[in-house]
Computed example of a mutant assay.
Amino acid sequence: MKAKDIMVTDVICVDMDERLPQVRHIMETNGFHHLPVTDKGKLVGIISDRDLLRLISPFIDSASEQPRDIDTLNRAAHQVMTRQPITVKAETPVDDIVAWLKRVDISCLPVTDNEDNIVGIISWRDLVNHATFKD
């Protein structure tokens, strides 16, 4: 089995200049945990829900909200993304994908073509959904 057999191909991405309120909205609306970031169609980074939890003030939309809390939302995707994410190709064997996820303690891998265009994404959930277990 290869990446192309299990990857999600309908990948929603954001531009590197997209602001965090829109990034957060896309992730919450779609139930995403990872959002690829592109520049002119090329993958340049990835934002995880953990990145947002770490950066956005927990006081947003609460009675305790302060102006400095709102300032956390003024950042652009490129300011908070993980740059140069580890990627795989569509022909990468699933065993290699599992090894990468375990080795570097990440929970998704973007799938790119030879020009760094994103063609899919694979998360640990995709691996579990396609797992076959031996008796």
Results as ranks from 00 to 15, higher is better:
Met1Ser: 08
Met1Ile: 07
Lys2Val: 10
Lys4Trp: 10
Lys4Asn: 05
Lys4Leu: 10
Asp5Val: 15
Ile6Phe: 07
Ile6Pro: 02
Met7Ala: 09
Val8Ala: 06
Thr9Ser: 08
Asp10Asn: 15
Val11Ala: 03
Cys13Glu: 09
Val14Pro: 00
Asp15Ser: 12
Met16Val: 15
Asp17Arg: 11
Glu18His: 13
Arg19Gln: 14
Pro21Ile: 03
Gln22Ile: 15
Val23Phe: 02
Arg24Tyr: 14
Ile26Asn: 05
Ile26Lys: 07
Gly31Gln: 07
Gly31Ile: 13
Gly31Ala: 08
Gly31Pro: 07
Gly31Met: 12
His33Asp: 10
Leu35Gly: 02
Thr38Arg: 12
Gly41Pro: 09
Leu43Tyr: 02
Val44Gln: 03
Val44His: 02
Gly45Lys: 00
Ser48Pro: 04
Asp49Phe: 01
Arg50Met: 05
Arg50Asp: 02
Asp51Gln: 02
Asp51Ile: 02
Leu52Val: 01
Leu53Asn: 06
Leu53Trp: 08
Leu55Arg: 04
Pro58Val: 06
Pro58Ile: 04
Ile60Pro: 00
Asp61Trp: 14
Ser64Gln: 06
Glu65His: 09
Gln66Ile: 13
Arg68Trp: 14
Asp69Gly: 04
Asp69Gln: 04
Ile70Gly: 01
Leu73Met: 12
Leu73Asp: 01
Asn74Cys: 09
Asn74Val: 11
Arg75Leu: 14
Ala77Arg: 00
His78Phe: 13
His78Arg: 14
Gln79Phe: 12
Val80Thr: 14
Thr82Pro: 03
Thr82Met: 05
Arg83Leu: 13
Ala90Pro: 08
Glu91Phe: 07
Glu91Cys: 06
Pro93Trp: 13
Pro93Gly: 10
Asp95Thr: 15
Ile97Leu: 04
Val98Leu: 09
Trp100His: 13
Val104Arg: 06
Ile106Tyr: 01
Cys108Ala: 10
Val111Arg: 00
Asp113Ile: 15
Asp113Gln: 14
Asn114Ala: 13
Asn114Val: 13
Asn117Tyr: 15
Ile118Arg: 01
Ile118Met: 04
Val119Trp: 08
Val119Ala: 06
Ile121Gly: 00
Ile122His: 00
Ser123Gly: 01
Ser123Ala: 03
Trp124Glu: 07
Leu127Asp: 01
Val128Arg: 13
Val128Asp: 10
Asn129Lys: 15
His130Cys: 07
Thr132Tyr: 11
Phe133Lys: 12
Lys134Ile: 11
